[in-house]
């Protein structure tokens, strides 16, 4: 128990400091509006009155932590999960596109890496394009992808998944190229001395050796896929998903809604990365590759 406390103490301390700064910031930022209101009504506000008013605004510039917590709780547990006001419902829309995009991106990244490792011409031709694809701002690409797919009559999950895949294939590609190349000269000579075919070498040596790199990449890729999906939900007035919650929140000045959706997205990302981490640990330990 003491060990748990010792580990939790620094985290809790930092968390408390952040919350304190957040409250101070919220009071300061929201106070302007309260002072204006009071001046217009010709009332004089005492400091405690001012502070308590800054914490209960409907549309604060910066909502306080407890307002966000209430908004988040209400969104997650206070609504029927089929309701349009439920963050669980919106979260599921985002999650499904994220997982689809993560799947497409992972498969594409692995296949391209296999091609690059086995073919010199692919190494020279594919890699520059892959790098170039990541230098284009996703915010610029996303609306075009949505529009192109919509003109072909495809809306909903797929266009968002494509944007998610756009972001998530890259870390997988880079990690797998590195991973598939980890076997050293001696291990490759060994395979050669047994006259192993390329595919035997791939399945028995290169692929298992690459797994630590694959998992490291997957953790980056799944978080990137979530970002891609949310960005994909912003344009063209999407009506569902955490991205849509962010967008409609900003249309109507619903800052509590924005922050709740942001925290829901952060929780989702943390959960996804943690799940990949658990699978990673179990797999690598089993394979004797854990370091």
């Amino acid at each position: 128990m003491t060990r748990v406390w010792r580990a939790a103490l620094p985290i809790m301390t930092v968390l408390l400091v952040i919350i304190a700064i957040w409250y101070l910031g919220a009071i300061r930022m929201n106070a302007t509006w309260e002072r204006d209101q009071a001046a217009r009504a010709g009332i004089e506000l005492s400091l405690p009155e001012l502070i308590s008013k800054t914490m209960t605004q409907d549309r604060p510039i910066l909502p306080t932590p407890h307002q966000v917590a209430v908004g988040l709780y209400d969104g997650l547990a206070g609504q029927a999960i089929t309701s349009r006001r439920s963050l669980v419902w919106h979260g599921w829309i985002t999650l499904s596109a994220t997982l689809a995009g993560f799947g497409i991106g992972t498969v594409a990244g692995i296949l391209l890496a296999v091609g690059i490792v086995h073919s010199r011409s692919m190494d020279q031709s594919v890699m520059p394009w892959a790098v170039a694809s990541q230098t284009v701002p996703i915010l610029a690409i996303a609306p075009m992808v949505i529009v192109v797919f919509a003109s072909a009559g495809i809306t909903g999950l797929l266009p968002k998944a494509v944007i998610a895949a756009w972001l998530s294939f890259f870390p997988v590609l880079v990690g797998m190229v590195k991973g598939l190349r980890t076997p050293d000269g001696m291990q490759l000579d060994q395979m050669k001395s047994w006259s192993a075919s390329d595919s035997q070498q791939f399945w028995r040596l290169r692929l298992p050796s690459s797994l630590p790199y694959l998992f490291a990449s997957l953790k980056v890729a799944i978080a990137a896929a979530l970002v891609g999906t949310i960005v994909g939900e912003l344009p063209a007035g999407a009506t569902a998903g955490l991205g849509a919650r962010l967008l409609s929140g900003s249309y109507y000045g619903q800052t509590v809604q924005i922050w709740s959706a942001l925290f829901a997205a952060a929780l989702l990302a943390a959960a996804l990365v943690a799940i990949v981490g658990v699978i990673e640990k179990a797999t690598l330990q089993r394979m004797g590759l854990a370091r």
Binding site: M186, Q187, Q190, S193, W194, R286, M287, L289
Partner: peptide, 16 residues
């Protein structure tokens, strides 16, 4: 023709 077996300096066993 698998005429020889080769033993290297390091064991090179697969950990998995």
């Amino acid at each position: 023709a698998r005429a020889y077996g080769y033993v290297f300096q390091a064991p090179g066993l697969y950990p998995w």
